[in-house]
Structure formats: C-alpha cells, structure tokens
C-alpha cells in the first residue's frame, strides 16, 4: 500500500513535502496517479505508519491537503 496526499495547488504540495521532511519523515512529490482526482497534478507520498503525525504537522504548519489516499 502506498499513502499519498493530494492538494489543490502545487504550492501546498511543496509545503507538505518540506513539512514532512522537516519532521524527519520521508516524503516525495510525484505526479498524481490517474485514479485520484487530478487536482493540482502533484501528490506527495508519506509513510503510512505516520499518518497521524502527518495530519498533525499539516495542521500546525497550515498545510492544506485535498485528501489522504491509501492506494
């Protein structure tokens, strides 16, 4: 399983990646897989086991996602 966050803007995708990496979590921006909403065209992977931490970091850093997906 892969965990991916999606965003309305590429701006937020980049902030998400930075925020995760800043917290020591691995994250990588990739093109949005077709099965997810195209939204901004970029998605960012994150470690599935750290999803709670990721959500908290987003809240703290004012990073807005349009969804968290498990594919």
């Amino acid at each position: 399983m892969e965990c991916l966050a999606t965003f309305d803007t590429t701006h937020m995708a980049l902030l998400f990646e930075k925020a995760c990496r800043g917290a020591g979590l691995s994250a990588r921006i990739i093109p949005v897989p077709r099965e997810l909403s195209a939204s901004c065209g970029l998605a960012c992977s994150y470690p599935c086991e750290s999803e709670e931490a990721v959500i908290r970091i987003c809240h703290e850093k004012r990073v807005e996602t349009s969804g968290f997906h498990h594919i």
Binding site: D8, A38, C40
Partner: peptide, 8 residues
C-alpha cells in the same frame, strides 16, 4: 488559462 492545476 492553464495553471497546471485542476486540469480536468
């Protein structure tokens, strides 16, 4: 025009 986002 194009923004690279919401391209659908």
């Amino acid at each position: 025009g194009g923004t690279g986002s919401f391209s659908h």
